[in-house]
Write a protein that binds this DNA or RNA. Structure first.
Length: 271
DNA sequence: ATAATCACCTGCTCGC
DNA sequence: TGCGAGCAGGTGATTA
């Protein structure tokens, strides 16, 4: 489900409902997510007041005096603001009950998501320690990609999806940005020129920013914290369109697999 | 160090 | 209508 735009959309959707709220109670129905939810998490959170919701890569971070709550949505996770007491479905694993009478509910059918705790004073959490730059910052640019990619034989798409290189670019937006930049996804990362990496960095920023403005991409049932769907799916040029005509040149789009992930591109527009 | 594969888990779609 | 195969927005761990 969520790539960076969906996580950012979720952050913006839930933050107004959480800000200033006291946490009354944490209910964990299923602690077995990608990693177990810490058994003492409720004790740490109860009575604390939420100040803000931050995002790093695809993690949502809620800082407190004694540490930070870390949330990850995995492939199928979502967060919703709902009234306390609403009956829980099969995949509603966690509720964070607030003083307002509402709760933040974490739902995740595949359980690839995570709910973790970073204690204050501990070294940066291992999951956050080796992440690359945020794509929507100046640090992420063509020169950076060019330098990091030298002598690499892996496909440029795999390189772009590596969180140690840059965070937040998942399968949908990697496909879309490479199409927009006119670069074949299976080209060796080390053989793409500095100039073309400049274009790629620009297109990554553009496609992510546009998607955030549209509220993310809704596939299946993704919804933001306010329950509204995203509208970016209507603007996808290649993702999910294998075999269909390229919207630029009419050539049927080619679908291959790179790193076990579905990869779609136009043989005529991308070189 | 880099690249490829495996693994985690459920639900849905497709072909027979 | 039922059933197995394959696929899905992520990413750490393991293997060459």
């Amino acid at each position: 489900m969520p790539e960076l735009p969906e996580v950012e959309t979720t952050r913006r959707g839930i933050e107004p409902h959480l800000r200033g709220q006291r946490i009354e109670r944490l209910t964990v129905r299923q602690p077995r997510l990608r990693w177990p939810i810490p058994a003492d998490l409720g004790k740490r959170l109860q009575g604390q007041t939420i100040d803000r919701v931050e995002r790093r890569a695809k993690y949502l971070l809620i800082p407190f005096e004694q540490g930070t709550l870390m949330l990850h949505l995995g492939m199928s996770g979502s967060l919703r603001i709902l009234p306390i007491g609403l009956a829980a479905g099969k995949h509603d694993h966690v509720d964070l009950e607030l003083g307002s009478g509402q709760m933040l509910r974490f739902t995740d059918p595949r359980r690839f998501g995570a709910v973790l705790w970073q204690a204050r004073g501990e070294p940066l959490h291992p999951l956050l320690a080796h992440l690359g730059p945020e794509p929507l910052t100046d640090e992420f640019n063509g020169d950076y990609l060019f330098k990091r990619s030298r002598h690499r034989q892996a496909p440029v798409k795999t390189f772009l999806m590596d969180g140690r290189i840059v965070v937040g670019v998942g399968n949908i937006y990697a496909n879309e940005a490479l199409f927009a930049a006119g670069i074949r996804p299976d080209r060796a990362a080390g053989k793409v020129s500095r100039e073309r990496y400049g274009r790629l960095a620009e297109e990554v920023k553009r496609v992510l920013a546009r998607s955030i403005l549209q509220g993310g991409t809704t596939l299946r049932d993704f919804v933001g914290g306010d329950g509204k769907p995203g509208y970016f799916a209507q603007q996808l040029e290649v993702y999910g369109r294998g075999g269909e005509p390229c919207r630029v040149c009419g050539e049927p789009l080619t679908e291959i697999r790179l790193g076990q992930r579905s990869t779609v591109f136009c043989r005529r527009c991308q070189r």
